[in-house]
Design a protein around this nucleic acid. Structure first.
Length: 483
RNA sequence: GGCGGCGUACCCAAGUGGCUAAGGGAGAGGUCUGCAAAACCUUUAUGCAGCGGUUCAAAUCCGCUCGCCGCCUCCA
């Protein structure tokens, strides 16, 4: 398979450090506030990468950290009048709630910065000993000028950056780009003992300490949002490779941003939507679908319209699933080949390979979803031909299994149609119960039997106004939630 | 100022040298239906921002122009 590597700027054949085994570290979140849809994108994208790698048969180890100590957390604690660790706990819990709803699995290890203070101190000490870092006023800085490869990930050199001059000049630093490995604590701030006095880790060092501890000094994949390329990941490379003398990461992967009116969604612009806000209006599966319907490196423009389209697409899938189930529950002894039997057979023969090909090409979930929908259309077409008998059942069953397999990789389409409609009823705030709907359908059936079309249409209209659509079929009337 | 990315139909979005440019939504027409809905079929880019160039062959490579965005500061 091929993966786009930020370090080299191109797609490369993926060859793990150790055959058959893959280690991936993704930068998680700083737990000081609600997560927004951008955080969701990153989490979902890496979740799918992991699922697909496991599906391919790799022994996969996934690490995703929580940054549970930093300035923003400390500030937040002051604002809320609670302790810094209470802030961290609150937003960690909320993170899990959001991710559970989005179908994002737990990582194999979810380390916290504050649980790795001794490892961090060990690395900082090592960097000082090797001459890559220096102490000033009980803080320790990494000296970027000492690391020749500095800038190789973000494709820039030190002179350009310094000339950019948007860096705050701290007179104590030897170079404005030098960054803190260890920060001396001010009075009243949380702190840990260290050889340089009480302090806390700088932002970047935790990822070096935790990834090396859990994945080794050289590992396969390190990822995060594209905004982490500089300075965070650039600094990680510098401190890690300076410390170990070995290449740190083989493949760097970064997801693109979510935009609003073409601008990056961010806290500072205030143009963000929290995951909770969005999940109040749209089903979580639709949100996940929305995030996967564009390639992970491209920007995605956020809008309600897009989310609604995602719901429509998922609805189409479940409508087909329902049809498949009805088809399989029919007694069909008469052997009748539909007109599209051959075409379906051929599509099924290639389906899983085409899906894999898409995913093998830098996790092209958008293409993969397109392939799934080609099959959905073919299945509907095939069933429109009213085939029956053993061969037909066999084909439909096979298709059903394949769809389940691809759905599992993406962690989409895993519910029953009923669960989908119930979820939609809740999120769209339909003020009716299933029993209400079935009762109205019963009344309408009676009206239809006496050919009272006006009454039948009135009931249908009434339900439609409440967001419920009726579909008359040969064997009765079905209902669905309007999306 | 430095570095990087993007511009594919009415909208969203795959496609990075070679079969008829995926898929979804929206629109139009049709099949089906009591009428609908769903589903299916047909239809909507001789063309991929524009202009040049390389090539037997380009949306795809190169150059220039226009437009948009990102990073260079915390940020998924």
């Amino acid at each position: 398979m091929r993966i786009y590597n930020t370090l080299t700027g191109k797609k490369e054949e993926f060859i793990p450090v150790a055959e058959g085994k893959v280690g991936m570290y993704a930068c998680g979140v700083t737990v000081y506030d609600h997560c927004h849809i951008g955080h969701a994108r990153s989490a979902v994208v890496f979740d799918v990468m992991r699922r697909y790698m496991i599906h391919k048969g790799y022994l996969f180890k996934y690490i995703r950290n929580f940054t549970d100590i930093d300035d923003k957390i400390i500030n937040r604690a002051k604002q809320e009048g609670i302790s810094w660790n209470a802030v961290a706990k609150k937003y960690t819990d909320e993170y899990y709630q959001d991710m559970d709803r989005l179908g994002v699995g737990r990582a194999d290890v979810e380390p916290k910065a504050t649980d790795h203070i001794s490892e961090i101190i060990g690395i900082v000490k090592g960097l000082v000993d090797k001459g890559y870092a220096y102490e000033v006023d009980r803080s320790v800085y990494f000296e970027v000028g000492k690391f020749p490869g500095y800038g190789k990930l973000s494709k820039r050199d030190l002179e350009d950056m310094v000339a950019g001059a948007r860096v705050e000049v701290d007179e104590r630093k030897r170079n404005p780009m030098d960054f803190a490995l260890w920060k001396a604590s001010k009075e009243g701030e949380p702190s840990w003992d260290s050889p340089w006095g009480p302090g806390r880790p700088g932002w970047h060092i935790e990822c070096t300490a935790m990834s090396i501890k859990h994945l080794g000094e050289t590992f396969d994949i390190h990822g995060g949002g594209a905004d982490l390329i500089f300075p965070h990941h650039e600094n990680e490379i510098a401190q890690s490779e300076a410390y170990t003398g070995k290449p740190f990461v083989k493949y760097w992967v970064h997801n693109g941003f979510i935009t609003v009116d073409k601008e990056k969604m961010s806290k500072s612009l205030g143009n963000f939507f929290t995951i909770q806000e969005i999940l109040n209006k749209f089903d979580a599966e639709a949100v996940r679908f929305f995030l996967l319907s564009t390639h992970y490196r491209s920007p995605i423009e956020f809008s309600d319209e897009q989310l609604r389209e995602a719901e429509v697409s998922i609805d189409r899938y479940y409508t087909t699933l329902l049809r498949i189930r009805d088809f399989l529950s029919q007694e069909s002894e008469k052997e009748k080949a539909g007109p599209d039997e051959k075409a379906l057979d051929e599509m099924l023969a290639k389906f899983l390979d085409r899906f894999k090909e898409a995913m093998d090409d830098d996790f092209n979930t958008a293409l993969a979803i397109g392939i799934i929908y080609e099959l959905v259309r073919m299945l509907n077409k095939y069933m429109d031909g009213r085939p029956s008998g053993k061969k037909a059942v066999e084909l439909i069953k096979k298709a059903d299994e394949m769809l389940r397999e691809t759905g599992n990789v993406l962690n989409l389409f895993h519910r029953t149609p009923e669960e989908w409609y119930r979820a939609l009823m809740a999120v769209k705030e339909i003020g009716l119960t299933e029993d209400d709907i079935l009762a109205r359908i019963g009344e309408r059936k009676a009206a239809r039997e006496r050919k009272d079309w006006a009454e039948a249409d009135r009931i249908r209209k009434e339900l439609e106004e409440k967001g419920i659509l009726l579909e008359d079929r040969k064997d009765g009337t079905g209902w669905k939630v309007r999306v």
